[in-house]
Design a protein around this nucleic acid. Sequence first.
RNA 1: GCGGAUGUGGCGAAAUUGGUAGACGCACUAGACUUAGGAUCUAGCGCCGCGAGGCAUGGGGGUUCGAGUCCCUCCAUCCGCACCA
Length: 907
Amino acid sequence: MAEYNFSDVEQKWQAYWKENKTFKTKEVSDKPKYYVLDMFPYPSGAGLHVGHPLGYIATDIVARYKRLKGFNVLHPMGFDSFGLPAEQYAIKTGQHPAVTTDANIKRFKEQLNILGFSYDWDKELRTSDPSYYKWTQWIFLKLFNSYFDLTEKKARPISELPIPEGLSKEEKRAFIDDHRLAYQDEIAVNWCPALGTVLANEEVIGGVSERGGFPVIRKPMKQWMMRITSYCDRLLDELEDVDWPESIRLSQKNWIGKSLGAEIAFKTVDGVNEVRVFSTRPDTIFGATYVVLSPEHPLVDAITTPDQKEAIDIYKEEASKKSDLERQELDKSKTGVFTGGHVINPMTGQQVPAWISDYVLISYGTGAIMAVPAHDERDFEFATKFGLPIKQVVSADGREISELTEALSGHGLIINSGDRYNGLDSKEFIKIAIEQMEADGTGKGAVNYKLRDWVFTRQRYWGEPIPVIHTEDGEVKGIPESELPLVLPEVESYLPAEDGSSPLARNEEWVKTTDPDTGRPAMRETNTMPQWAGSCWYYLRYLQPDNEMALGDPESIKYWSPVDLYVGGAEHAVLHLLYARFWHKVLFDLGYVSHREPFQKLVNQGMIQGRSNFVYRIKDTNTFVSFGLKDKYEVTPIHVDVNLVDKDVLDVDAFKNSSHEYKTATFELEDGKYVCGAEVEKMSKSKLNVVSPDDIITKYGADTLRMYEMFLGPLEQNKPWNTNGIDGVFKFIRKFWRLFHDGETFAVSDEKPSAEEMKILHKAIKKTQDDIERLSLNTSVSGFMITVNELSSLKCNKRAVLEPLTILISPFAPHLAEELWSRLDHDESISEATMPTYDEQFLKEDAFEYPVMINGKLRTKMTFGADVPANEIQVAVLTSEIVLKWTEGKAPKKVIIVPKKIVNIVV
RNA sequence: GCGGAUGUGGCGAAAUUGGUAGACGCACUAGACUUAGGAUCUAGCGCCGCGAGGCAUGGGGGUUCGAGUCCCUCCAUCCGCACCA
């Protein structure tokens, strides 16, 4: 019997799609639009493993489904092709990153294409193409030439910035530069010596770089910054408008870290300076028995008394040497030094000592705190260690605890805060205390954010050059738009310089330029943009990747925005998604895009982990024992290449041939087989658990791989890859094929389907559509299997059933569906077909035996169906609703009817 | 520490609004057709029990005629954030 030849069929249809541009997006259409987007990949040298396509398969199914449902679908793919690995490879080998990147992209595209994705490759983009980064630079200039209007809470062109009267030329320029959304600042940045570059806060995790895990230190440097903090409130509030997973919304909220409280001034005793602190608990101000400044705080020297100067200087020196990693070590006990100076608590009027400590961060709030040891854990620890006074001012029951053993961080009744305030509810006192301090001029209500402005420069080669020049007299100017793109120049070496300047600085010829306004010599900016820049707006460029005149056509942007479905990994929860939203909002303010948020619905596909296999070697021998026997010996587990293992059974010969070391190995088998152990780990080369989609496709075909990846479990869930179950899907594909065949010949009958067959079909239509709509793609695959099992046992080969079923399955197994579709005498691609609709009349329940409960106790069974059964109680079934008729006796007190399920009667 | 997610057979999992828990698939067992099968088909497959029946969705408690699903509480695993004032 001729079996389904997936390999020929898949090649045939992939060639057909490519040749006919089957999936070319229609720009103009009266159909409703649907924009379904994948997070585009960084084209790494390793190629795709079986985990990468998970999200792409899901979006491809949705894209194909929406086409069949009559939507005009945009489903593009591109490459985030600026990035560190290509540059590091370049440093090692001298190979230009563009060459490496091109080769990697070629490989990626091949791998994507054999999966049968319906991308419109005419829309492809690469962030490292000058034609693309021309517009990344253009957006940079827009940010450079805009300011944030605080009253309207939106970006406006810098030309509209109101400038105070009477400023000198230099002051005026400084004033403008101070308001730009992209601006330069000398700040303490996260400098990573190993990578030779500055990193954004978001790229530093626990004191080490996100990429590579190298130590990061703080170093003051002049950097380009993005004024993302202006957008804190909008980035927070407008999260409510999008359909995103709660966990991502929370991550973004936490990252922005908005807290409400008060900013309070503690004047120095001499009245010259004031230490401003931020507190979320101004109600505890009567308990503020000292203040702590961060070692980097600008007032430290002014407050320090001469006899404490030496100790303070030593402490400051030590703190500056510490990396963030060391400062963040949690279990270390608190350190600090008394400045010798005192400040005045504005509410009590008492003098309190001022200390410095590195547990107070210069980068958060005002860089100084009022310490309330009775009600803050950290302050309590500090006060206890240094013998500072602890004063309880909030109490749960209004009484004071004589000997506090821990900080009481909850709310309660105010005590020890003067007759005016004692007895108040502490939450209420927050408002009252702020009002009082505002009246006294000693404090005010304040909002504080954790989010800092975005450090936008990298001292790297492989990124977008920043399109500005520095003039002789120190002015910074954007280059004219007509000069874009500012193409990345060639350099001799890709290594960053030790002083922190970018590799671009090496090309002196390129750096030297002239100021177009004055004709005087000027220097180009040599830093480049961070990798996030290109991915901040790529979803807009897909609409018109070839548009040389504009970022995109406004009509097109209006038609396609927002992205209806965006699928990608949760690792971009804060970085990419926050930056992209920020840029989008600026573009929205300036009138270039039509919607406030770029991505309407976001789904995070889970990670596919590796499933490693192990063999067990008896210590000091070359004998391996099977999994079930290993406990009898002292064994060492050794990773074995999962590609030599099938259903946990080792291919012993292949294993022997895999390495010289194993040539002479001997094996202790169980039931004639060598069984391997298994464990879930990250998929990686070193663990020998990488499964390539290419290998799976060679063995089972792309349709099987697509369906199996969906079948594996819910899309959002992390799950280990396990090839063991793939046979089931493979069998299903062949079984489906066989429905259309009688032996070797294609045989589909035009006979009218039976009621039972119609029911199977319509059930399948309903289930598949419901499942895709809620992205439960695993259950829709199961649903297909049930359907085919049912039809198969009926030996149903009727066109009226099989044809709609082919359409239904085509988003999942497009190659198989196309082949069958053409054999069913259709000339056009199945993607031109229309999704069948279901008819309720075929979905009616059959006669069914229902349990009937009376008073929750009696249990009998009745059959409800077309015939009304006779009992003491007469029951009829109409469609799926059950109607009870009472012929004798009293009507029951309570009748609970659950359609299709149980009749529950309380008499 | 704070926040989020998850917990169902030997395994991956289903159960969409509370309504016959374990669909579907893997593995396994038995059988059929076969020279053979890693092909195909049929049947079985949560646990205890010969059986009728009983017990089962991480543990305990609650609401309900009815709970995997809702509420309280505890436990475990994974993932974020973390001296954020």
